[in-house]
Amino acid sequence: MKSILLGTVALALTSVAAFAGSHSVVRMGTEGAYPPYNFLNDDGEVDGFEREVGDEMCARAELTCEWVTNEWDSIIPNLVSGNYDTIIAGMSITDERDEVIDFTQDYFPPTASAYVAASADADLMGGVVAAQSATIQAGYVASTGAALIEFATPEETIAAVRAGEADAVLADRDYLAPLVDASGGELVFVGDPVPLGGGVGMGLRESDGEMLAKFDAAITSMKEDGTLNALLIKWFGEDTQTY
């Protein structure tokens, strides 16, 4: 830990001059297809919980931020190759990812994933369960007894349940909740929520220690003065978990 800290300090000292020049604009990378975390609104602009959190963080850290969207599949390779500076895309903090990039502290508490099905008696452990490919949920379903069926987008997983292709879908509860509400009884939550992942944090390159510290401080201050809780309730409803 000490050596990492020292390294960070050394890096901060050497790169402070470059920092002012190159990071005068911080590019925030997101997916834009995962409401309420992030999505494109009717005007085609990035909107959602993370947009507001991100803008607030940037304001507190006194950074100018710009929003860009990128496919989920290549979101980490493009970060480490320097096409944008942060990932703020509902990304759960996992050990695998942490080896490659650094995360701020979570700005969204660890939450549960949930199963949604067309009927309450769906067989979650022996039936066919849909999940978005390359998510922690897909990995979890593969390790249960259920037959995993994977789709490229979350949208298609829901469509598969509606069409009867899959018995149920496993995804973040907060993504599913508005869909279940809007379906008018067609879709229902089934079974107990599954705790997966370690909260949602902002991803940065491992070499960007200074920026990480700034955003971390911004999140701390937002947690302390209740701004973050207000945003959580605004986007995820009264009964969501808060800090």
Partner: peptide
């Protein structure tokens, strides 16, 4: 894609 009233 499906759009729920909350976001549009």
């Amino acid at each position: 894609g499906t759009k729920t009233p909350q976001f549009t």
